[in-house]
């Protein structure tokens, strides 16, 4: 299949091709990740790091100071993820389906517009939405008033019950362009003949989409799902820029990322704790790994990939 036959001596040019990437990647990514993992088994005492086995993990999972914070972050993060799966990805799919229709004019423009928010930084997105939802500026209230919904306006970002949902939706607003783009690419990759054949058989657009297009793009849908998962369980910036590192109100928007940051760097009168920070990071790593494995063995193996 490949023209160059394996030689006895490892060919020098292969080394040249691979070495720079492998070295940088190993030094600045693999080594730090492994070292963080190592650090999570140590505790700092009088400026020295002492091996303490699983005691950091024990503390994180059982100590009354850490336990509620950790599980709270896991729970919030799960909600954050579920909202993305329920809102961002279906909506992204719907938009992709609409603009992939050949009859829709101006789709280049739409695509550019929908993708626009995802190229903005969290600093901008967080601040913009904080301003819009600020009861002081009254933009959000004004718009809802215009739609005769003024009485339903609430300071969502400040209420325990709604802050996390509001932030999840802001994040959806920002990133919807990415699933849209990926799904769009998959949709227009479907050969016209398949669709024409179905149309001749009398299928309408709805049926064609669910009967033919959707099964074909299912692997992409799965990929979008796992990318969302990894992204969500790694999220930090949006919460940090709008709610601060304490992820208020009352930790209701605390995600794994903010817990990690707070633990590692400390707060007002609390000093940072690198080894506990590494422990939180290791748990994030574990959660992401479990998710990825589930995806690879639970989903990817069962989904048929159509070779077009």
């Amino acid at each position: 299949m490949i023209s160059a036959k394996p030689k006895k001596k490892f060919p020098f040019h292969i080394f040249v091709f691979l070495a720079p990437a492998v070295i940088i990647y190993s030094l600045f990514m693999v080594y730090p990740l492994l070292d963080s993992l190592r650090l999570s088994f140590f505790t700092e005492l009088d400026g020295k790091e002492i091996f303490t086995g699983f005691s950091n993990y024990n503390r994180l999972l059982n100590d009354p100071n850490w336990k509620p914070r950790f599980w709270g972050a896991v729970k919030n993060n799960s909600i954050f993820f579920i909202i993305h799966m329920l809102v961002q990805n279906p909506l992204g799919l719907a938009l992709a389906a609409l603009i992939s229709m050949k009859s829709v004019k101006g789709r280049d423009l739409y695509r550019a517009f929908f993708f626009l928010p995802s190229i903005l930084s969290f600093v901008i997105v967080g601040f913009v939405w904080q301003l819009i939802l600020s009861p002081l500026w009254g933009i959000g209230e004004g718009i809802m008033g215009f739609l005769k919904l003024g009485e339903y306006f609430k300071p969502w970002l400040g209420l325990e019950g709604s802050a996390l949902i509001a932030l999840s939706l802001i994040s959806v607003w920002q990133f919807i362009g990415i699933p849209m783009m990926l799904l769009y690419a998959a949709l227009i990759g479907i050969p016209d003949e398949l669709i024409e054949a179905a149309r001749i058989d009398g299928a309408n657009n709805w049926k064609i989409f669910w009967g033919i297009k959707f099964p074909i793009i299912l692997p992409t849908v799965g990929m979008v799902g796992i990318l969302t998962f990894v992204g969500n369980f790694n999220a930090f910036d949006l919460i940090y820029t709008t709610q601060g590192a304490l992820a208020g109100p009352n930790f209701s928007t605390d995600l794994m990322g903010t817990l990690f940051y707070r633990t590692f760097f400390g707060q007002q009168l609390q000093l940072g704790n690198p080894t506990m920070g590494a422990t939180v990071a290791a748990m994030m790593f574990l959660i992401i790994l479990v998710g990825v494995l589930l995806y690879m063995f639970g989903w990817q193996r069962r989904v048929t990939t159509y070779d077009l």
């Binding site: 691979l18 990647y25 990740l33 790694n234 930090f236 590692f264 590494a278 994030m284």
Partner: peptide
């Protein structure tokens, strides 16, 4: 194996190694 090794990084955010990156 090398391909897999290089692909791990897609799934694991580099941020989790921040502590060690800073020290490095």
């Amino acid at each position: 194996i090398l391909g897999l090794y290089l692909a791990i990084g897609i799934m694991i955010p580099i941020r989790l190694g921040t502590v060690s990156i800073l020290r490095l």
